Simulated scan of single mutants.
Amino acid sequence: MGAFDQVAHGAIDHAECAALGIAPEQVTDFSSNLNPFGPPSSVRAALSALDPAPYPDRSCLRLRMRLAHLHGCEPDRILVGNGANELIHLIAHTLARPHATALVIAPAYGEYEHASRLHQMQIVEVRTQPEDGFRCDITTLSAAIRRINPRLTWLCAPNNPTGVSVEPAAICDLARLCADCDGFLVVDRAYHAFQRGLRDLRDPLDEGSPPNLIRLYSLTKSYALAGLRLGYLIAHPAIVASIGRFQPAWSVNSAAQAAGLAALADTAFLPATLPQVWSASDDLETGLRRLGLKVWRAALPFMLVHCSNGAAVRMRLLQHGCVVRDCASFGLPEWVRVAPRQPEENARLIDAWKEIV
């Protein structure tokens, strides 16, 4: 990837649909890792009541106070952004050094590398492998950190696209290793709440994280708010202040803030819907395996499906009204990523796949 190349993403591509003569509203999106049972009704009510005339609160004070209560920290440790994507780029803008090293634990979200390259960093990957169950070998990773002294280390845990997680204690150990070389560990926790069987949605990393650990969270995944763009980071107050200096004023609009507050106030939503997400995932995985497909699923409800050519399978499914995520941009060209949706939609995908196998 070059510094100015576009990063591949999931979701329905309206320009692609137009070129193919496909109506986007006729396509079911299995490429986006969202809660298919959201957003909460309270969010729709909050948006309906919103007055769009006033400027938004540029400090996101109420939302930061609510998030601080959730994570057991002070509001000055939280920066709210226009999606986690904005925060990834703000982190790189603030902390990158030209010609320093950015270490990416891959496969991973492409914006980590992209944001680092934009600031003239050298990219080094430590890749997990399918034959090892995409497991992140902490010993190997620790040795790499000691050897290359990265300024920024990017870790997605639980991982997108593999779903494999890393123990909180290991994350803290890695952060301390990064500190020894004056580096920062950025851990993307966007999918933390989706892990199966969580009895407490609070993050274990809330307790005693090292000061050079920066944690990224998204409210768009588990609450299905992707169209509003809403994420936040948690870090040491000095790091938050430094990153915040580069954030444009009014970056987070009033609709996103209102939706975030409404979603967080609805404490029954995630406990009610996450078991439904996992039930849908179980059924979808079973249906795909019955077609003779090789399926990989770990700690998250989305899954990888092995095929001879991921891009070709994606296109053929799109022509049947279903879009999945071609994983070539993750360095996995023989896989596609599939996120579960509601049962009747999952059945539609199974029927479409029957037509192409």
Rank of each mutant, 00 (worst) to 15 (best):
L264F: 02
A262I: 00
G287H: 04
L291W: 14
F269N: 07
L270T: 04
A265V: 09
P275C: 02
G260M: 01
L288V: 09
W278N: 00
G260F: 01
L264K: 05
A265W: 10
R289T: 11
L288K: 00
P271V: 10
L264A: 13
D283L: 09
L270M: 01
W278Y: 10
K294N: 05
L284S: 09
T273Q: 05
L270C: 02
A259S: 06
T273R: 01
D283R: 11
R290E: 15
T273C: 04
T286V: 14
F269V: 10
L274H: 11
T267L: 07
W278K: 03
D266L: 11
A263C: 00
W278Q: 10
Q276E: 04
G260S: 06
D282H: 14
L288I: 12
G287F: 08
S281Q: 06
D266I: 07
L284N: 11
S281N: 12
D283T: 09
L270I: 04
Q276G: 05
S279V: 14
V277P: 07
A262Y: 01
D282Y: 10
L274W: 04
A259R: 01
R289P: 07
G260P: 11
P271G: 08
S281I: 13
R289E: 15
L261G: 07
R289D: 08
Q276P: 06
E285Q: 14
P271T: 08
F269H: 03
L270N: 03
T267Q: 10
G287W: 14
R290S: 15
L261K: 00
V277C: 09
D282R: 14
A258Y: 01
D266Y: 05
A263K: 02
S279R: 11
K294W: 10
G287P: 05
A268Y: 09
T267D: 14
A259W: 04
G292P: 15
P275A: 08
A259C: 12
L284Y: 08
R290P: 08
L288W: 07
R289N: 09
V277M: 09
W278T: 03
L261I: 10
L293N: 09
T267F: 10
L264I: 10
S281L: 12
D266S: 08
V277D: 03
D283F: 08
A280P: 15
A263I: 00
P275F: 03
A280V: 12
G260C: 06
V277G: 07
L274C: 13
P271A: 08
F269S: 13
A272D: 13
V277T: 03
L288N: 01
L261M: 13
A258S: 14
L270S: 05
P275V: 07
L288R: 00
G287K: 09
D282I: 03
A280R: 12
E285Y: 02
P275I: 07
E285S: 03
R289Y: 08
G292H: 09
